[in-house]
Design a protein around this nucleic acid. Structure first.
Lengths: 196, 196
DNA sequence: TGTACATCAGTGAACGCGCGTTCACTGATGTAC
DNA sequence: TGTACATCAGTGAACGCGCGTTCACTGATGTAC
């Protein structure tokens, strides 16, 4: 029962991108095969190349999509100003986020693998992450968001690394304490003002 | 020309562990095949299982070894007290470290992949990272290193995430600014004292 | 309205290749007498 | 000292399997007359 039309195909493509984003975050990029990715979307492997040029093409597209979704759902939805920032930080460094790999932050799930990706993928990542952190920078310094760009980026690095570390530890008590300490560190960074 | 004896075999094993550590950091765990790992050590694939039970066994051993080496070379070699900490931070968040994946920090290179590893590997990672951060904690609070453990761990998370992010960005100017901002953040964390 | 044809999203088998792992074998080294 | 045998680190071919990718085909949908 294959439906027909440009619209339907675009829908299918969207579904593949979304399920692939989840799968990549859960099993890693190298850990996710094309057959599995297509099965996730309810399709067989053969249809893949009607939608994407290569696996790398999907990787690039899925990463860009993940960052866009994160910018729209997490960052854009938060309250304005410092209250929103604190909300973002506390949500990010929470046990719930720690335990939901597939639905979580693509940076925390994939950052070191992205560093080993093709230039095309890294370029798409760079573009996507800039959009994401601009939403953060706008809350840090509403009058001059550009000046806060690097600081916002460093906040993302801090949070992603802390979450990764918390996920890698087998000592759950320590992992929990690390998240709390990470919140303190992130809030201290926010309150340091522009003079840092 | 195969040499004989327990001593020689232990040497060979050591060589495999060291070259594998490098390779894992460069190409990722999933990205490094057993044949390649053995070729790196100057051997053929067949000899692998005389040294390790499985690939996972080597992964576990290599990660533990990498953390031990880092504790001994980077942390233990630094000057005592706050001066040594600053030295560690500046070395870690330097362009040189950023550009030397194979010789660099295993946390920055592999942290998200380690989070997806078997419990055995994550346990070995946890043990190894605790030794590493104890060296940092001892410099943070010589009189009560245990109290500084979590803070030291959070410093590692901050630095590893920042380095990963700096590696993933295609904008080298921005990547450089991020490293500098990361140094500021790390030093601010050090100077925050025990009251954080 | 009905029929013939074009379009095209998706199927599923197959391609060559590298994966992790096994195993029969080689040949240098060490031991016994 | 010389010879026969045991030990064992390492070789290299092979195993079944899943990888990314290709392609002939199916069958539902849309279009033309």
């Amino acid at each position: 029962m294959v439906r027909y039309g440009k619209e339907h195909k675009a829908e299918t493509r969207r579904r593949i991108i979304e399920t692939a984003g989840r799968r990549f975050k859960q099993d890693g990029i190298d850990g996710s095969g094309v057959s599995t990715l297509m099965k996730d979307a309810g399709l067989t492997n053969g249809a893949f190349y009607a939608h994407f040029e290569s696996k790398d093409d999907l990787v690039t597209t899925a990463i860009a999509d993940q960052l866009k979704a994160q910018a729209e759902s997490v960052v854009a939805q938060a309250a304005p100003g410092r209250a929103g920032l604190e909300q973002i930080v506390r949500g990010y460094l929470s046990p719930q986020h720690r335990d939901s790999l597939g639905d979580g932050c693509p940076n925390a799930a994939l950052l070191d693998e992205i560093g080993r990706c093709t230039d095309m993928t890294r370029q798409a990542y760079t573009d996507g992450v800039l959009v994401l952190i601009d939403g953060i920078a706008a809350r840090m310094a509403p009058e001059a968001p550009n000046s806060a760009r690097v600081k916002a980026l460093s906040l993302l690095g801090l949070m992603a690394g802390t979450l990764q570390l918390s996920r890698a530890l087998t000592d759950t008590q320590l992992a929990h304490e690390l998240l709390d300490q990470g919140i303190n560190n992130a809030l201290a960074l926010l309150d340091a003002g522009q003079h840092i």
